[in-house]
Amino acid sequence: MDMEAGIEHLGRSTAEAVDVLIVVVEPGQRSIQTARQIGGLAAEIGIHNVVYVGSKIAKPSDRDFLAAALDSAPLLGYLSLNDTIRDADLSGSAPYDLGGAFMTELAVIGQRLAALYQGA
């Protein structure tokens, strides 16, 4: 289930039946703070499998920042800041249909998720 950004859904406990919660986090303090709140709220309502995906990665230091800020939290991978995704949104297309680096990065994330939570 793809939910809107933020923590409101978890506060209402609408995600209790979730097997694995993927939190998308950007390189920035506010995003890290929100990701930590989501992880805490998820634990409170019984979601124990919380993983993270770094998004809008513009340079290697963005990866380093997220890895350090998330400490030992499971980080499945990264999605680069990518004009293809923005252009797809502007044209009403799905980034999936456009292919490219985004799909390669997404495939890695999918493989890591499957490896971690087969049968979760």
Rank of each mutant, 00 (worst) to 15 (best):
L98C: 09
V23L: 03
A17P: 00
S13V: 03
S13E: 09
A42H: 01
M103Q: 14
F65W: 10
N82I: 15
V50R: 10
T34N: 12
I57N: 03
V23N: 08
G46P: 10
T84I: 11
S72R: 12
L10H: 12
A120Q: 01
L81A: 14
G110F: 00
L75F: 10
P60C: 09
I38M: 05
L21N: 04
G40T: 03
V18E: 04
V50W: 10
R30F: 04
Q37T: 14
M3G: 13
G28Q: 08
G28I: 13
E44G: 12
V50T: 07
V23Y: 09
S93F: 11
M1Y: 14
G54Y: 10
A43L: 13
V108C: 08
T84R: 15
Q33P: 15
L75N: 07
L81T: 14
S80Q: 04
L81D: 14
E26R: 02
A88D: 00
P60F: 03
V53L: 04
L98P: 11
A15S: 01
E44W: 11
Y117A: 01
N82P: 11
I47Y: 07
V108F: 11
L41K: 12
Q118V: 13
L81F: 15
F102V: 12
A114C: 06
F102P: 04
Y117C: 00
S80L: 07
A5P: 03
Q33R: 15
V20L: 02
V18D: 00
L90P: 14
P60I: 07
I57W: 01
K56M: 04
V53G: 02
A42W: 03
A101Q: 15
M103W: 12
A94M: 05
T34K: 10
F65V: 01
A107E: 13
L116H: 10
G40L: 03
N82A: 13
G28Y: 12
I109D: 01
A120G: 05
K56T: 04
A69N: 05
A88P: 05
S55V: 07
Y117H: 07
Q118A: 13
V20G: 08
D62C: 00
G11W: 06
A68P: 03
E4I: 05
A67P: 01
A17D: 06
A88K: 01
V20R: 00
L113N: 02
S93K: 15
A17E: 04
A35M: 05
S55R: 09
A101S: 14
D97K: 15
D2V: 01
R30S: 14
D89H: 12
Q111V: 09
G77A: 05
A69H: 06
L70P: 04
I45Q: 11
G39P: 02
I22V: 14
E8N: 06
G77F: 00
G119S: 02
T14A: 08
S31V: 11
V20P: 03
H9T: 07
